[in-house]
Design a protein around this nucleic acid. Structure first.
Lengths: 200, 200
DNA sequence: GTCTATAATATGATAGAC
DNA sequence: GTCTATCATATTATAGAC
């Protein structure tokens, strides 16, 4: 996972590996049990450590949690931006569908960082939410731009906002029902596409 | 709140009032801080009690939480069923929009029971989720029926499922962005309506 | 019905040995 | 870097007085 690597100018040491393992394990735990119920003892056990050792890598539980969630937005943002960059000239609806599929796929199959962010954000303490505001805004901007093009220059600001919230809500909701053994992200995306293509 | 009253055959005593106050306060706390972070001390303080006193009314924290969440589904189900019963002969799209508006309105403005259920369900222990399965199924059935009529008798089972998850996800997502001072539930519902009317 | 007091356990965090 | 040991505090739950 490239997002967990330190800057390439520095050599990857033992601490970097341990830190990355802690972050991965924390993302998985947070997604499953939530922010408050993820104890540092349980987390440490998952990476064969003792709770106190985590403090060599992170100053506090909230610092660790913030880092997990920050990586989450950055992962999905990078995935969506890359996919869109490969198809710069498609019409708006097609570009939205690319973003829809990549968002779903990253969240459901690829990254506990993304899913733990989405699930835990509502209950995380305010200081953590504040520290995440900027990265979240940056990802939102992708959708604001995509939907702005879709609705056209005459659309009201709030029209873009409501449509964005509707879409992101539908996508993130999949976290609560999607079963990889039974469900198809592409089939789900197809239903979103049908609604978007016929409207407007 | 009629849902908090005991069966009408029994007189409403002091215990019933206290119990109802505890449940209301718990719903508010759960919505704000989540299942794990709602301590029984904080809850007791909100109703001017001590933590131990709660055990006169409930056998355990999880029993109390289950009851709060059970009431949540029952409240929104009753509201939607009543509204639909008043317009039995409208076309499917109109009936869906009635359900959309009542679901949004109940969740956002009326009931901490509904919103705490939606927010906390993903992180609540499995035994609690099992005890809620039946009431949740009952509410789901409303939407399965509504969307089944909308898509017509030829629609596949999964088409109804995906569309239902999409819709409920968009609605429940409002819990995370809706600001009563700034946003309009009706405007949001309007965007959903535009998509549904033009599709199919 | 609600209180006080407390048991039993868990938590985030720190200090210092190795 | 990770450990052990521990502090200070918080948690759910219970027992018995009032």
């Amino acid at each position: 996972m490239s997002e967990l690597q330190p800057p390439p100018t520095r050599k990857i040491g033992k601490a970097d590996v341990a830190r990355a393992e802690i972050l991965s394990a924390a993302a998985g735990l947070m997604r499953r049990v939530g922010y408050a119920e993820m104890s540092l003892r349980d987390l440490a056990a998952e990476v064969n450590m003792k709770a106190g050792s985590l403090y060599y890598h992170f100053q506090s539980k909230d610092d660790l949690v913030t880092e997990v969630m920050r990586i989450g937005v950055e992962v999905v943002e990078a995935a969506v931006r890359e996919a869109l960059a490969r198809h710069p000239d498609l019409p708006p609806t097609d570009r939205i569908m690319i973003a829809v599929r990549v968002h779903l796929d990253t969240m459901l199959k690829k990254s506990d960082f993304v899913s733990s962010h989405i699930r835990c954000y509502p209950f995380v303490p305010t200081p953590i939410r504040n520290r995440l505001r900027e990265v979240r805004r940056s990802y939102d901007r992708i959708w604001i731009d995509l939907l702005g093009e879709y609705l056209g220059p005459d659309a009201a600001y709030d029209d873009v906002r409501y449509l964005r919230h509707l879409l992101i809500g539908a996508l993130n909701g999949a976290l609560e029902w999607f079963n990889p053994n039974r469900d198809s992200a592409m089939a789900f995306a197809g239903h979103i596409e049908a609604l978007l293509r016929n409207a407007r």
